[in-house]
Amino acid sequence: MIYLRLFYEFLQTGLFAVGGGLATLPFLYDISDRTGWFSYGQLADMIAISESTPGAIGVNMATYSGNMVAGIPGGIIATLGLITPSIVIIVIVAHFLNKFKTNEGVQGVFYGLRPASTALIAAAGFSVVLIDLVDFDLFRQTGSFIQLMNWRALFLAIVLYILANHIRATKQLHPVIFIAFAALVGIIFNFGLN
């Protein structure tokens, strides 16, 4: 029963992903590893689409991955799986709101969770970058260091990083604009052909 499995996988994601939409990312990679429902490359596309369409990223990614696995019902079921733990947990937390905020045990748990969540997102990003920008196979075949890296993509990444962080005029721009710009560069310079 693919729907049941989808619901269960995204229930787990909703229950353990702490810190917002991108925190679901490591869980999606884990699902990809275990089920083969989608590839890392497809996941990167899903992130891009989720960032550039309305709605919270985490929800969009769940709908998208469910949709890839089992069509429109799959998208709906994955999303319901993702939000079920939130509803249960928040309804409970709401009852104990004031105790929750000041409880030292709870604060201790989150003190450990926050760096862990950051590390998981960083690791997920790192592994996908490694797959997309570094071509070990070609390097092994040709022995040429120049072909180890996808230099054009790396150059675009550096330009985007500088625009998004260090140029005052472009720093405040919405992520959608950087995504659109990167799409345009990809089309003009045939990025898909490598």
């Binding site: 990444a157 985007l160 990083y161 990809g186 310079f189």
Partner: peptide
């Protein structure tokens, strides 16, 4: 396909930025 190859690069930069922002508050 070309568009998405470009878009993927921008996604990596967005993830990097999210991690750097989280780093400041989480660690």
């Amino acid at each position: 396909q070309n568009a998405f190859a470009g878009i993927r690069v921008s996604v990596y930069v967005l993830i990097l930025n999210a991690v750097l922002k989280l780093w400041k508050s989480a660690i």
